[in-house]
Design a protein around this nucleic acid. Structure first.
Lengths: 369, 369
DNA sequence: ATGAAAGCGCTAACAT
DNA sequence: ATGTTAGCGCTTTCAT
């Protein structure tokens, strides 16, 4: 605002030493006698000296600042991840430069460039596209990059995510064990691998799909499929509802179509928080009671799930831990670790709250399909 | 990671011009002929030149970076505020250095210092203490500072917050209009102005309390008091429950004590989101039905409030707008605006969802006290 | 242990 | 319109 800031040179002059000596005591490097040290410290104190980290960074070549590109910092998902990142960054007094991509490639690109120009020591990105991320490849050539939640094809860097397949499989298995044979799945499933939902289901049915590089919602679908396979329950294609975009309205339409239609499933599994909210709204609108008329489980644990009527079962992602792990891995790279890319999948946790009951119209026991 | 970065000098050499000329075209300042410009641009492109913003900042004296000290980036409240800040910052391509204070003065202090040393152009702080903020005063002398949600006594800087008094008053007035005469208030009310709750109630009763510099929860209490005064309903001190700390467990104890006790109020007003969650849990535990047994309104609108049974009424704060306003004001100061401190109070919004009914055991009409 | 001097990558006078 | 030179605030050789 106003006050010109005090430089090392001024402190040095006031203390009667050279800038080098002043720098040594103020910067905490090199040698200095107790005598000079106290003189410098005193002068610094008196003048109100504050180091200019920019100048230091320009010369040392590192900024002790990490760049983060989140989808939307306001969503509970990213907010929790960011908190985890911040926790770890703070332990090593790293600063955090945070941006939102809104799942928009152009914005992600600008963000990544800006962060690099600001000379961050490393980057944590939740990439919004799994392919053709030239900017990420370029960035990764200059600074360490860690991917979070999603992976990018052929980008050989560390990545952290939840174990989506196991989480989904476990929870759909629970539904099957409760006797459900017709389980709906509502998910984003936006950009499609393998040429669409149909081919994907075909390939997955034959165990030909690899999880790596798949978007989270597709990985969850894979878990859904595998649970069916493990239980020997045939898939019913009409029960897999692909919303195709990350929108509440579209999700609600899709959920409503499944619930109101003639072949209503006895249970619904939702692919993420947005889908859960939408499905919940559709269930309410249809006047259905959970779990009497419909059982429900969602991927992602949300606040309201603990508050509504019977409570909604969910698969909780270790969001904070994902952020912490990503930050820890990044910091290791920043510190010079030179190892092959690491791929960490964190276990999810089942939250049981009573939204799973027996299929309606049956005694409540499982039966062969 | 590996690649030494390309400097302006190298580009200049490759283009056959001076560093000054290269700087002029790459930095977009000063004059340059179309001829040299394209030569420089080409060379830059070919070499993969990326400006080093640190070096630029060191010389220009500004970083196009704003520092933010939030309480907890993970909470929906701060997350939304941050999103608002980010939205505005982005329009002027400012970066955001974000930290958490966890409402801890020592951490806030370190954060403010770190941000200053990183040479942010301005600071947005949600101060965790309304008094004795020497570090903020010091910071404000160097860079523009905008306070959010809370104010600091005798710190003459811009500030943004919700209109807590009007919001609370309006919503308690609604409860009174519905016939409630005994309305409980559960709030944090941590650091106490005027020597405690008793004296505060005394002073407020006589209209002797000024809103400025009061913590949000105290301002909301003031609204609660004024609503009673306006309706001519005497205050019942036992109904004002001071939790004294920002903890769910403590809040739940306090709420439970009020609800389970003999003199249970017919309605409860909660001072913030945490209190609302706690109160809701207590209500559930007590097996009470809303609004049949108890009416409820909370300050702060939370996700779950729209999902539970009848829906919970709330006073919504314009959180994004708070962030946006703060950022806009800060950017104005950064741009050189020199005006007396501005104090903005943003209007709240009542969310009506059906958690307010008539007091139990009455015909549902108001009656004189 | 300390100082002199060079220079990080860039912009800002000042010439021309 | 372009080049030369200085220097932002700091760290880092290199002497001593």
């Amino acid at each position: 605002m106003k006050g010109k800031s005090v430089t090392i040179a001024e402190v040095a002059r006031a203390a009667g030493v050279s800038t080098a000596t002043a720098g040594r005591v103020l910067g905490g490097y090199g040698y200095s006698s107790a005598q000079k040290r106290s003189a410098v410290l005193e002068a610094a104190e008196a003048l109100g000296y504050r180091p200019n980290l920019l100048a230091r960074s320009l010369i040392t070549g590192h900024t002790r600042t990490l760049g983060v590109v989140a989808g939307d910092i306001e969503s509970p998902f990213y907010a929790a991840i960011l908190r985890g990142i911040a926790n770890v960054a703070e332990t090593q007094s790293f600063g955090l430069l945070i941006t939102n991509s809104d799942e928009n490639v152009a914005r992600e690109l600008r963000a990544v460039e800006l962060l690099q120009e600001k000379q961050v020591d490393g980057l944590i990105v939740s990439p919004c596209d799994t392919i053709g991320a030239a900017h990420l490849r370029e960035a990764a050539a200059r600074v360490p990059v860690v991917l979070i939640d999603r992976e990018v094809e052929a980008l050989e860097v560390d990545s952290v995510g939840a174990d989506n397949i196991a989480g989904a499989q476990d929870c759909v298995a629970g539904l099957l064990a409760a006797g459900h044979r017709r389980i709906g799945f509502v998910a984003e499933l936006e950009t499609s691998p393998l040429g669409g939902l149909g081919p994907f289901l075909d390939a997955a049915g034959q165990g030909e799909v690899s999880a790596r590089g798949l978007y989270p919602s597709w990985q969850r679908l894979l878990g859904y499929i595998r649970a069916h396979q493990a239980a020997g329950v045939p898939l019913e294609r009409g029960l897999v509802r692909r919303v195709g975009q990350y929108s509440v309205a579209a999700a609600e339409r899709e959920a409503a179509a499944m619930i109101d239609g003639p072949g209503r499933p006895s249970a619904v599994f939702t692919g993420d928080g947005l889908m859960s909210s939408a499905a919940m709204a559709a269930v309410r609108a249809a006047g259905l009671a959970i779990p009497r008329d419909l059982s429900m489980v969602g991927f992602d644990d949300l606040d309201w799930m603990a508050f509504v009527g019977p409570g909604i079962d969910a698969v909780a992602q270790p969001r904070r831990a994902m952020g912490e792990t990503a930050a820890r891995m990044l910091l290791e790279r920043v510190a010079g670790l030179n190892a092959p890319p690491r791929r960490v999948r964190l276990a999810t946790r089942r939250m049981r709250r009573g939204s799973i009951g027996p299929p309606p119209g049956r005694a409540g026991d499982a039966e062969a399909s």
